[in-house]
């Protein structure tokens, strides 16, 4: 195995640090929390107000010209049915998620499989900021400055074999941490998948943060997928399992309504959703009220404007039937 994950027999930090030091630290943290008026919260991830800055993030050329939505906007308008079906539900409910410690199981046709601590999976890579457009299948969009690492770099390290034709992803199932999973709004766990070449494409990102801060729970902490040329629901959140598979894996919305949501779900203004047109989008900036009510809609672009980078992946493919 490439990365060592912590075993129960390992020395815990409390055995190294003296008890006195720990008590002092606790007293300090309690005092600090009381002073700042917030409850004591996990430091690695949590709701936006408790977020921590990510260090050593490399800026990239992606989306330099875009104007990102505010952190408040990005963290208060979410489709994350594990915390409720309303757009404001995840922000309200996602505090129950415990994104640290977090492990990801790697399975299937690869040289290195097993359960990895998330930190160990991410640490070998340089964090990058990429400002991407995110187009939701519901005809709204947002510009989001993600922090993450290219999925392909992680996958390469795991050594996929020639049998690995697709990559399958799975979200956590835990009724305590994700209370809305008690209702059958969707079949749990949430599943998604990519073709191998899509997964290896340099645009595809495993994101761990937004606006330079650790990924807020409601946006899919601690680690989520971002595929900017596909509809937003392909970007599976709170990933616990990544599998290298031979056949096209199941994807939740595709199972739920195969006529409406295809496996590929590439952004395509020409192919309308059976219930609404996909030719335009409401751009959500974080601004509310009158301004948002009368903001002009934007024209939706093929592959969400990333055609130059990704169109070749689908050369010769009928994108109407393979939607």
């Amino acid at each position: 195995m490439l990365i060592r994950i912590k075993k129960a027999s390992d020395v815990s930090s409390s055995e190294i640090t003296s008890k006195e030091a720990i008590l002092n630290r606790r007293a300090f943290m309690t005092a600090a929390a009381a002073a700042s008026g917030v409850a004591l919260l996990p430091t690695f991830a949590g709701p936006a107000f408790a977020a921590a800055r990510l260090e050593n993030v490399k800026k990239t050329k992606w989306g330099e010209a875009e104007k990102p939505a505010t952190l408040e906007g990005i963290t208060s308008h979410n489709n994350f049915y594990e915390f409720g079906t309303g757009k404001s539900d995840p922000k309200r409910n996602a505090h129950t998620l415990k994104p640290k410690p977090w492990t990801v199981e790697i399975a299937g046709h690869a040289e290195k499989t097993g359960t990895f601590d998330l930190d160990d999976l991410i640490r070998p890579h340089q964090l990058e900021e990429r400002i991407y457009r995110m187009r939701c299948v519901e005809a709204w969009s947002m510009v989001i400055p993600w922090v993450g690492i290219p999925l392909g770099d992680v996958l390469k390290r795991l050594g996929p074999t020639s049998k690995a034709k697709y990559v399958a992803f799975e979200t956590l199932v835990d009724h305590e941490q994700m209370p809305a999973q008690r209702s059958p709004a969707l079949p749990w766990p949430y599943l998604e998948g990519l073709r191998m070449d899509e997964a290896m494409h340099p645009l595809t990102l495993l994101a761990v943060g937004i606006h330079g801060e650790v990924m807020p729970n409601q946006n899919g902490a601690p680690i989520r997928l971002v595929v900017p040329w596909k509809y937003g629901f392909k970007g599976i959140k709170s990933i616990v399992k990544i599998s290298f598979v031979e056949k096209q894996p199941p994807a939740t919305w595709n199972i739920q309504a195969p006529r409406e949501y295809g496996f590929y779900s590439n952004v395509n203004p020409e192919r309308s959703h059976p219930r609404w047109s996909q030719s335009r989008e409401r751009v959500i900036t974080g601004e509310g009220g009158i301004k948002a009510l009368f903001a002009p809609r934007a024209e939706t672009k093929m592959f969400n404007g990333y055609a130059e980078e990704v169109a070749s992946l689908y050369a010769g493919m009928d994108l109407f039937n393979n939607f």
């Binding site: 906007g73 208060s76 404001s88 709204w140 409401r282 509310g288 009220g289 009158i290 948002a292």
Partner: peptide
């Protein structure tokens, strides 16, 4: 709600008031 979102900075009609309305 529209007044409050516009003037007081609340988000009673969410960040997507067109849909909400």
């Amino acid at each position: 709600a529209l007044y409050s979102d516009t003037v007081l900075g609340t988000r009673l009609l969410t960040n997507d008031p067109v849909q909400k309305l």
